[in-house]
């Protein structure tokens, strides 16, 4: 069984954990350094990236998470994607810069600009995904090794690199599990690939 962790410093971690369980994964809440041991993948949830930055350094460090994310599959949503990406240019937020994507925080404005939209997914174009954007970040530019899996309003909103997956919206807030299932599949493929190469 695939073992996934959900970083639980703050934010929508319980919703991610419930969705991953429903997809058949074993789920562990991650609050301490030791919680990362033996995980096949990790979700960095939405919430406030300033709060998460502040709390990295207390019971779980930036370096612990960086070392894990450097070598293992990680799915970041909203604030979680901000942490995975680069270019936020804000001293209050410390990014891993592991995904070559330049990200602007709160790019759409205050909460009254938050929205929902039905968007097609690259890996399942027949059924739109009901995407909920909450004070969402925007992906301004991407490196060559990053693939766009969904776009909205002319900007990429779901992206993947070799190890990582990132969304500017919140699939954990809907009952549609396709994106979490895609992440679990990605973990399986990476795990199998590692076995073959050793």
């Amino acid at each position: 069984m695939i073992k996934t962790g959900v970083l639980a410093i703050q934010g929508a971690f319980a919703r991610h954990a419930a969705t991953l369980s429903a997809c058949g994964a074993e789920v562990r809440i991650v609050k301490y350094r030791r919680d990362l041991e033996g995980l096949d993948g990790l979700v960095l949830p939405g919430g406030e990236s300033t709060t998460m930055t502040k709390m990295m350094g207390y019971r779980i460090n930036y370096e612990d998470l960086f070392r894990f994310a450097e070598k293992n599959p990680v799915f970041g949503t909203c604030a979680g994607l901000i942490l995975l990406g680069r270019g936020a240019d804000d001293a209050r937020v410390r990014q891993f810069a592991l995904v070559d994507a330049e990200i602007t925080r709160n790019a759409y404005g205050s909460q009254k600009e938050s929205f929902v939209d039905d968007i097609p997914l690259e890996f399942d174009r027949d059924n739109a995904f009901h995407a909920i954007f909450i004070r969402a970040p925007r992906i301004q530019s991407l490196g060559n090794n990053v693939r766009v899996l969904a776009s909205c309003g002319g900007f990429p909103v779901l992206i993947e690199s070799e190890l990582h997956l990132g969304a500017t919206f919140h699939p954990e807030l809907t009952d549609d599990r396709r994106i979490h299932q895609y992440f679990i599949q990605k973990i399986k493929e990476i795990k199998n690939g590692k076995k073959q190469s050793t």
Binding site: G11, R15, T51, S114, I132, I134, L173
Partner: peptide, 14 residues
Amino acid sequence: FEVKVGLAEMLKGG
């Protein structure tokens, strides 16, 4: 409503 509740969800554990 889901957009409104969405922000409340993001504030959990804080």
